[in-house]
């Protein structure tokens, strides 16, 4: 089973990296880019688990480690 965990800064948390990218893009003429938010993508390959077990395991790992709930949220996408 393959799965992805996408970690993003929560709404309302300032993203200085995203702002720097947006500002640079605006300077380079991409004025249509109104906002940029930078996140993380973590890819997993799981063995010997059912999709339900795998997703539960990844949720546990994301809660415990991959995302800091004070500033980040996450979403799991499995294939």
């Amino acid at each position: 089973m393959k799965a992805k965990v996408i970690v993003k800064l929560k709404e309302g948390v300032l993203d200085p990296q995203g702002q720097a990218i947006q500002q640079l893009l605006a300077q380079r003429g991409y004025s249509q880019i109104a906002d940029v938010r930078v996140g993380k993508l973590v890819e997993f390959e799981l063995e010997n688990v059912t999709p339900i077990e795998g997703e539960a395991m990844l949720a546990e790992i994301a809660d415990k480690l991959l995302a800091n709930p004070i500033i980040e949220s996450y979403r799991i996408e499995s294939q």
Partner: peptide
Amino acid sequence: LCEVGLLPGALMLNRNL
């Protein structure tokens, strides 16, 4: 200590990157 929850809050990237 913030990550493990012994202290409140989180330390993010500096404002000036």
